[in-house]
Design a protein around this nucleic acid. Structure first.
Length: 527
DNA sequence: AAGAGTCGCA
């Protein structure tokens, strides 16, 4: 593995704000990477694997292994890095491994080599714990291995940046590797492409693809799958389809996941006919649709109003593939039915779930509540919320939002306030859209202008941008209650977030406040 | 080896 250059080390220090690293200590395992890395089980000590297996079992089953381990293996050197590598192979529980790693370092003065550190970092990534990774990385830098950092380390860091929403920093690192002319693999490219594609930053995605191609690294189907997924999620399904067709023309083996991703992307943007074409094409090629594929197309049919088609497909999935009786499949059906005004059918399915031994999850509840609210059935929706809480499920903002919105729209603001408070008490953050409905509802009700203003400020504090019309509603509402100073305060905020004064607001002022002593108004009256 | 799916977007 190539050692990373000094410039990378400097670069990394800038990123995470490390303090000066300590003087580098001599490592007891300095020769590890040269001599023994290739022969982990064949070369060297044949007992190592066996002992690793034993120790692995021990730390899994014995509660206080820390106290007895050394006397259990009196002459064994646990601080042998090869041993730790062996242990990594046998230990599947990463947290236990971290505990052991910590024990080695604190009790036995174990000084891990860069290879060991890399394995630890990879473990963090596997667990999806990027915060833990950065903590480990900090530790690692403090032990002074900074000069040993190799491309494996940097790959881990790039992955962590990509996963942690800092793809930009990851890309900077990759650029540094490129500049240093170090040998690269597909992996870091794929992670970054995936991250940028998800964010819809297509120019960066194509830049990365071009870099790969220029370095004769052939991006694989998996890479392109991320690209296609990103394009679809960002509302560019037809561009995704172009990439997809282009891949087929270039002889890539397009598999079931690719087809499913593409079909799903087309379905969510209402291009069902293209999706159906692909569906037939994959069957012609002998690729059997699985429950992901079925659900995607069923959802697409419902979305385009083809209820019969969706039902037929569902029946086929149940009869021929035997995967109709799952929570996901039912949720898809419930969503689709209530989206198409068939709430009673959806309700029936929903009610039959426990009888059939299926678990109803939050999505089952949320989708049904949404559908019922669309028809104004807020009483039933509230009952569903009670039921969900009784089952011990944790509601989300979209559990409450549709009910609050409907209540506010239909003038039942009092009930809306009750639910709003319940939602606040559970620490759920409403969407900007829900705030709008709620604030508008408060404005409609007499005597709630202070609340309306306060919730508008809460929105701003939570970095949500209220619509201009909501600002104006609140201003109007305040003026009607002679609260000129407060209305000016709200206007001030409105301008601060980038809106300009519109005629409507000026009219509110003219009508409500200014006529009495405004010379213009007096003049007009006289003339 | 992994990758893909269910909740509205006014």
């Amino acid at each position: 593995m190539a050692r990373a250059s000094a410039s990378i080390a400097t670069f990394l220090r800038q990123f995470r704000g490390e303090t000066q690293t300590q003087a580098r200590r001599l490592t007891v395992e300095c020769s590890e990477s040269e001599s023994s890395s290739d022969g982990s089980s064949a070369g060297g000590n044949p007992d190592l694997g066996e002992i690793a297996k034993e120790v692995s079992n021990l730390i899994r089953t014995k509660p206080r292994w820390e106290q007895t381990l050394r006397s259990d293996f009196p002459s064994f050197n646990f601080a042998d890095s090869q041993f730790f590598q062996e242990l990594l192979k046998h230990q599947t529980n990463a947290f236990l491994l971290f505990k052991f790693f910590h024990w080695l370092r604190s009790e036995l003065d174990f000084i891990p080599s860069i290879k060991t550190w890399n394995s630890v970092l990879q473990c963090c990534l596997k667990l999806g714990k990027t915060d833990l990774l950065w903590k480990m990385y900090q530790d690692m830098m403090e032990t002074g291995v900074v000069a040993d950092i190799d491309t494996d380390t940097v790959f881990c860091l790039i992955d962590a940046f990509a996963k942690g929403g800092e793809a930009g920093k990851g890309y900077e690192l990759l650029k540094q590797l490129l500049k240093d002319g170090l040998p690269l693999q597909n992996a870091p490219f794929i992670k970054l492409i995936s991250a940028f594609a998800k964010r819809g930053e297509n120019d960066v995605v194509s830049e990365l693809l071009h870099t790969m191609i220029a370095r004769t690294m052939r991006p694989d189907v998996h890479t392109y799958q991320e690209v296609i997924n990103g394009l679809c999620k960002n509302g560019m399904p037809l561009e995704a389809l172009k990439v997809f067709n282009n891949l087929k023309d270039r002889g890539y083996a397009v598999d079931r996941v690719m087809y499913t991703t593409m079909i799903h992307g087309l379905c969510i943007s209402k291009h069902v006919s293209y999706a159906k074409e692909l569906w037939l094409e994959m069957i012609r090629k002998g690729i059997v649709p699985n429950h992901y594929t079925y659900n995607a197309l069923i959802h697409g049919y419902f979305k385009s109003g083809n209820v019969e088609g969706a039902k037929e497909l569902y029946k086929e999935m149940s009869d021929r593939r035997n995967c109709g009786e799952t929570t996901v499949a039912y949720n898809t059906m419930i969503t689709g039915l209530s989206m198409n005004g068939k709430n009673d059918e959806a309700l029936e399915l929903f009610k039959s779930m426990p009888e059939k031994g299926m678990v109803r999850d939050l999505i089952s509840f949320n989708t049904l509540i949404l559908g019922l609210c669309k028809e104004g059935r807020t009483v039933e929706s509230r009952k569903l919320i009670e039921e969900l809480l009784a089952l011990g499920l944790h509601p989300s903002a979209s559990t409450y939002s549709p009910v609050i919105q409907k209540l506010c729209l239909s003038g039942d603001v009092q009930e809306g306030i009750i639910l709003w408070n319940e939602m606040q008490n559970k620490g759920l953050q409403p969407s900007a859209w829900t705030y709008h409905h709620f604030i508008a509802g408060l404005c409609k009700e007499k005597g709630y202008e202070t609340e309306a203003m306060e919730w508008l400020f809460v929105m701003l504090k939570n970095n949500l941008k209220p619509k201009q019309s909501i600002f104006e509603r609140v201003v109007q509402c305040l003026l009607q209650n002679d609260r000129v100073d407060d209305s000016l305060l709200v206007l001030n905020y409105m301008v601060k977030v980038g809106y300009s004064l519109r005629g409507i607001v000026i009219n509110h002022f003219l009508w409500c406040k200014l006529p009495k002593n405004n010379p213009l108004f007096v003049k007009q009256n006289n003339s």
